[in-house]
Design a binder for these strands. Structure first.
Lengths: 200, 200
DNA sequence: CTGACAAGTTGTCAATGACAACAATCGGGA
DNA sequence: TCCCGATTGTTGTCATTGACAACTTGTCAG
């Protein structure tokens, strides 16, 4: 029975989720180094050791946070693709890029964390599979585009590597830029991607 | 002089540089969270408060470290460009990419730190100008290429944005990949960049 | 009912970053 | 040359933190 918020019940209800949410706020507002388990515990109104029941480690909390980040980003990308389903390949890639960059702008610190964890060799297998799902999503419009003759080549590999690199790189480099400027710049980047550097 | 068993002079000689070097090693070996000022001090053979004379803050140390990273990377890129001076635009871009990715592979944690600091609004002006010099270097072969008719367009802006995004993104995404695979993949990416996604 | 397990609590410890007050060394000008 | 101020390093201290141990409270299956 959820007893409501009366005089703090002994059991929090969903401390795990509350900690992750708090962590994300703290991460965004004060940077990764300022993130303290004890502070999160205080915000949640529990004792300083309570987080230990849900996360073995500070690192475990960060891993869980990164994981939610990947899930959320992948979800948004999938939604963007579904919405642009019947448009051209270029439009779909642009939709993908817009979404990715949007995420990078309003969750810059989280994105950093996500890739920092991904690069760590001690990363959990869950994290790796989350990254895979993300990449699969990016590859989808490319495979479709090649099948429909809108994108050159028949091996999605090199094209996917290029597009995901450009996507991630652009997002990472422009995470601190104002959304309007980014939007404009982004359209140009997708155009250059499709038309290539070499003169036609 | 109470020169005990260790012939350690009261003054270290160049503590500042020693700390930065130690910090880079520790960063690479044990990750950013394990980096402790006191440990660096111990490694340098000085007291736990000595680093405070050279760096106001732990953050200040990290900023200085990031700065050396940018300087080193820019230096390598400039050298790579100079070496490839009389070749075609595509070769020069490939040289740039190789160098950038090489840096990312053997200094992955440092590169993360560099961009983490860059994204922080409280970053020092020195850091910003270091980033600018880096971008200028990347833009150079593009301007040259457009002037020589090897790269389409006359505004380097969009092309530079695309190339630097792809460069940085590819490096970031492949920092944990084996050098051989990366080398192969990299050549394909540069090819796709030049020829574009759209069928010719 | 009950007892095992999950979730939270208090207590403690070593490590850390920051700072203050003090000491040794160095270097430049009188 | 000598002295005095600026640098650089030292010891001491403090609050905060992450981790762990031992204990308590609530929950739920049988």
């Amino acid at each position: 029975m959820l007893d409501g918020m009366a005089d703090r019940p002994y059991h929090h209800g969903d401390l795990r989720a509350a900690l992750i949410a708090s962590a994300e706020r703290a991460l965004a507002e004060r940077g990764p180094s300022a993130l303290s388990l004890r502070e999160l515990a205080r915000e949640a109104g529990v004792s300083h050791a309570a987080p230990g029941r849900h996360f073995k480690d500070k690192q475990a909390l960060l891993d869980a946070l990164a994981l939610t980040g990947f899930d959320r980003l992948t979800g948004r990308l999938e939604h963007a693709l579904d919405t642009a389903e019947d448009t051209g390949a270029r439009t779909r890639v642009l939709a993908l890029a817009r979404t990715y960059v949007g995420f990078a702008i309003d969750s810059a610190a989280l994105l950093d964390l996500m890739y920092a964890r991904k690069h760590d060799s001690r990363a959990s297998p869950q994290l790796s599979s989350a990254v895979e799902r993300l990449l699969d999503t990016v590859v989808r419009p490319i495979i479709d585009g090649q099948a429909g003759g809108e994108i050159a080549g028949d091996d999605p590999g090199p094209v996917a590597a290029t597009v995901s690199a450009a996507l991630h790189g652009f997002a990472s480099l422009n995470a601190a830029t104002s959304p309007e400027k980014v939007e404009e710049s982004l359209a140009e980047v997708v155009r250059v991607l499709f038309e290539g550097l070499a003169p036609r």
